[in-house]
Nucleic acid binder design. Structure first.
Lengths: 229, 229
DNA sequence: ACCTGAACACCGTTCAAGT
DNA sequence: ACCTGAACACCGTTCAAGT
């Protein structure tokens, strides 16, 4: 067994690159949360001292920007050719999916960076272009843009705080939180849980498309030449 | 000048209480941001060693829960007597105002804690009660609740990332970001800035009530006995 | 009962030194 | 060119010791 210098770790050689550092950081954040992503812990994952990472990443802010851009680029980019409603709908649902796979992404994309994150700029540009092509005035585009992004990012942060991961768990968890709840102090919450949330057919995830469609319906009235309600 | 033991600080005696600790923490977070709020820095503000704080606060998580509850309690609590639309509107605008005075609050209120933050429970209970009294079914109440909170919290996190604080600064800042923007790569963003954002009358803050009213209009159709559109 | 000093196990980051 | 060890200035928190 001549192993020589590369003896102390199973995967010794593959040289560090920015790409490899960012991928490992995404893995770590997905598995253990963003707060577990420290330079030292990330170094361990790559069988390297923390200081080596600084050869591929300027600092921690650059690392976070890098993973936000990489994961943010997975979100569907709307085009100007199809109808605006289908495109905005598809983009919103894609963002919801990406944010639910990587719960740390939405927060990082919202963080103010200088320069701005390319994935965000591409999204902004594509959304504005799609709405303009769909018949929205400049002012209406600004309205629609702000409303949609508030909803999408708001959903992401609400979802990230949910105590359950799948709809199967909703029932038992609702029962558990109901047991701890001072029912006389919060009667309306108690009623909501017993008569709605705990019922079999309930799915919190369905709320997303409901709200999204309500917003899209409302925005439709804003377009040039839209029939007044 | 007989000053004796209390010589090394201007405000020496007022004994530490949980209230005083929380107030000082809110001040510090407002002035320098949540990331500046460490136990050691907070101790300094109160002319006390960091370890003394643990006599009034279980740990840092408890401190954060405490300031979230205190600031969150400033948000208007909707009643069941007035009409649902006015109440929901007033509550949303109040939340927007509180979140804009204390940009760190919305994030803390969204954080999952066990037990839940009382201010949040009171809000949830009041909102559900108001909507139910306003003629919303259980399912419609869940829809409305989710949509409104996504929008309100989404707005807060979008606003927290804005690079400007007042509407006066919008113009110059838009010009500055336009100068750095690769215009051929992001033509629609460039157009939006030059032809809308940079124009004198534009106010990002106005977008909040626009989106809010669009959502309230949509929700109005959900009520029992609402006229079908 | 409340406050403190020293200590522990962590952070991000710099810098001189190694290969 | 890339990686490392030691060091610095920070964290939250525990614990024995002071008053």
């Amino acid at each position: 067994m001549a192993r020589g210098a590369e003896r102390h770790n199973a995967r010794p050689r593959a040289p560090l690159t920015r790409e490899r550092v960012l991928r490992a950081a995404i893995d770590l954040a997905d598995r253990e949360g963003l707060e577990a992503l420290s330079m030292r812990r990330l170094g361990q994952q790559l069988s390297v001292e923390a200081m080596s990472l600084y050869n591929h990443v300027a600092n921690k802010a650059d690392l976070l920007l890098g993973i936000a851009d990489l994961a943010g680029s997975e979100i569907y980019l709307p085009s100007t050719v199809d109808d605006w409603r289908a495109e905005m709908r598809r983009r919103a649902i894609s963002a919801r999916d990406v944010f639910s796979h990587h719960p740390w992404v939405s927060g990082l994309l919202e963080a103010q960076t200088d320069p701005p994150i390319p994935a965000t700029l591409r999204q902004h540009n594509a959304v504005i272009g799609c709405l303009r092509a769909g018949g929205f005035s400049m002012a209406a585009t600004a309205h629609a843009f702000s409303l949609l992004d508030c909803y999408i990012y708001g959903w992401a942060s609400q979802e990230a705080t949910l105590p359950f991961e799948t709809d199967d768990e909703v029932g038992e968890l609702a029962a558990a939180s109901l047991a701890q709840l001072p029912r006389d102090e919060y009667p309306h919450i108690a009623e909501m849980i017993t008569e709605h949330t705990m019922k079999p057919g309930y799915s919190y995830a369905d709320e997303f498309e409901f709200g999204l469609d309500l917003i899209l319906d409302g925005l439709d009235n804003l377009r040039d030449g839209a029939s007044a309600s």
